[in-house]
């Protein structure tokens, strides 16, 4: 029961309190770029969740089973980025082969994910927070993906309505999106301190 509560807390904390997009500024590029329509945003969110869960767990395993015992922490960044690039490739091949319909709907998002900072960022944060067991690392990775999906879908929903709003000409496009994101972080800040 105790471990279950810890895991649940970790999950809630990464989804809404320490949301990677809104409090750590990770994954801002797709957050601004792909949040034009809700269905696109949802697709991107799912693809990121998929990859981040795999690469977060894998990098934790590599870090704890290979790099730390061998004293090779120095090559951590290189290993992490290669694992992520590899994971994206594998996921892409797997989905193309076995779920062609899903592959069509993910489309261009999959290769783009390699340079999504949310994924490398999460792997680094797991390491920084000193997570020392596999279940927690896996839950955090999955939660980070869900958090990203939540943030990008909320944003897309707002932007769909924003298209109809009368925005000053010079603020159209990226500027108003950034200001909206700012107000959204303000709302999410209300969750801070919820878990002690």
């Amino acid at each position: 029961m105790d471990t279950f509560t810890t895991l649940l807390m970790a999950f809630i904390s990464i989804v809404i309190i320490n949301n990677l997009v809104l409090t750590k500024f990770l994954g801002i590029c797709p957050y601004l770029g792909v949040s034009g329509r809700v269905d696109m945003a949802f697709g991107m969110g799912l693809a990121v969740t998929f990859v981040v869960t795999i690469s977060g767990t894998l990098t934790w395993l590599i870090d704890h089973l290979i790099l730390i015992p061998l004293d090779l922490e120095i090559t951590r960044y290189i290993c992490f980025i290669l694992v992520i690039a590899g994971a994206v490739q594998l996921v892409e091949m797997y989905i193309r082969k076995f779920f062609p319909a899903l592959y069509d709907s993910f489309g261009i998002f999959l290769p783009l994910i390699t340079t999504n900072c949310a994924i490398l960022g999460l792997c680094l944060f797991i390491n920084l927070w000193g997570i020392d067991n596999l279940p927690e690392a896996a839950v955090l990775s999955f939660g980070a993906g869900i958090g990203f999906t939540v943030a990008i879908c909320v944003m897309a929903g707002i932007r769909e309505n924003l298209n109809l709003a009368d925005v000053p000409k010079c603020l159209r496009g990226a500027p108003i999106t950034l200001i909206t994101a700012g107000l959204l972080t303000l709302a999410f800040m209300g969750f801070a301190g919820m878990i002690k």
């Binding site: 603020l171 500027p175 108003i176 950034l178 994101a181 800040m189």
Partner: peptide
């Protein structure tokens, strides 16, 4: 805080567009 980051960048971008 994060709010300040987003809003400052948004307004600066708007200013540059203008």
């Amino acid at each position: 805080m994060p709010v300040g980051a987003f809003i400052t960048l948004g307004l600066v971008l708007g200013l540059i567009n203008k």
